[in-house]
Design a protein around this nucleic acid. Structure first.
Lengths: 183, 183
DNA sequence: GTCTATATTCCGATAGAC
DNA sequence: GTCTATCGGAATATAGAC
């Protein structure tokens, strides 16, 4: 992996473990055994790094949407839920949740990129649920978009709340989300 | 209101608008037209202030639980949901969500106080849903505690996600939470 | 591309006068 | 209880050598 990619990866982990305002370029340089100034060579400002981290997440999402495009709604939803299970196994929170709580402190460019990312996630899940409802593998009363909002908020906050109440609560919520698609 | 109470109130708003690591004692002193050092007189460390803010929230919760104790489950649930609607009207996120994403950066005392607060919220909502299920005004398949986890995660993340997708999505989620208690 | 060195700003915290 | 003044540390960022 290139230096640039490593910085993005470490920055991503730091945002999701400590928050955007709590991590520093030194945190990254220290782990890579390079100097602070070297990180600035690749990303002049912290905002530049934030944007690149968001772009990497969007790219990864686009790849996942593409690679699961021929599968059924159940498989697609499992792919979506697996994102959160992976994050939980790392003990972190998701990028959207972490940056959403810091929204008023980040550069407008980051805020806008984050909004685009959130919209893309919402649109994907809405499409999955719509397909599933049409084909009959999912059953719910409200609109696919509203159900997508419910599913996403359950998973996003499951990562945050289960840090406080009980780690197992994440899986309790995850299982109930799945059950909630068959009523 | 006393100086101490004003500091707590402003600190609370700052945590929920900018996050714990992004606000400073100067932010508070500036708005109160006093000096940085005066804030430190009331709260020697930032951790001390964080603890007091959490204690104030717990106290407020206890008062709400007490004052609604004679009401029915529907009224109690509306009181719970009103907390989030009020926060939304201010454009902020909730204290639990804000501090949960910063959990790895705060003093252990704050983390423990936050966990207690989250447990108290979960226990209250669980009790409300249990009462409602027993009396028949609420209907759901899973356990009251699991349903409480679903409701809380929906509301907590609705504040965060609706900042990004659409402000109206908060109310969409809120209404769907209510509908979800009558299936 | 990475380094040393440094400029600049900001923050948490404290000492001591009033 | 609030003030002035300041210390010490940390973080973002840049200049210029290698």
């Amino acid at each position: 992996m290139s230096t640039r990619e490593t910085i993005i990866q470490l920055g991503d982990q730091l945002i999701r473990s400590k928050g955007f305002n709590a991590f520093s370029f030194y945190d990254i340089s220290e782990k890579m055994k390079i100097k602070n100034a070297s990180v600035h060579y690749h990303f002049p400002t912290k905002t530049d790094l934030g944007i690149s981290i968001l772009e990497a997440h969007r790219q990864k999402l686009h790849s996942l949407i593409e690679s699961t495009s021929t599968k059924g709604p159940v498989d697609k939803l499992n792919s979506f839920l697996l994102i959160y299970t992976t994050i939980k196994s790392e003990g972190h929170v998701c990028l959207v949740g972490s940056l959403a709580t810091d929204l008023n402190t980040v550069d407008l460019k980051i805020a806008n990129e984050l909004k685009t990312f959130a919209d893309e996630i919402l649109n994907w899940v809405t499409t999955i649920l719509d397909e599933g409802k049409t084909s009959g593998v999912f059953s719910f009363q409200c609109s696919p978009r509203t159900k997508a909002l419910m599913v996403i908020t359950n998973m996003l906050a499951a990562l945050q709340l289960s840090r406080l109440t009980n780690e197992e609560d994440f899986y309790t919520i995850r299982n109930e989300v799945i059950k909630g698609l068959k009523d």
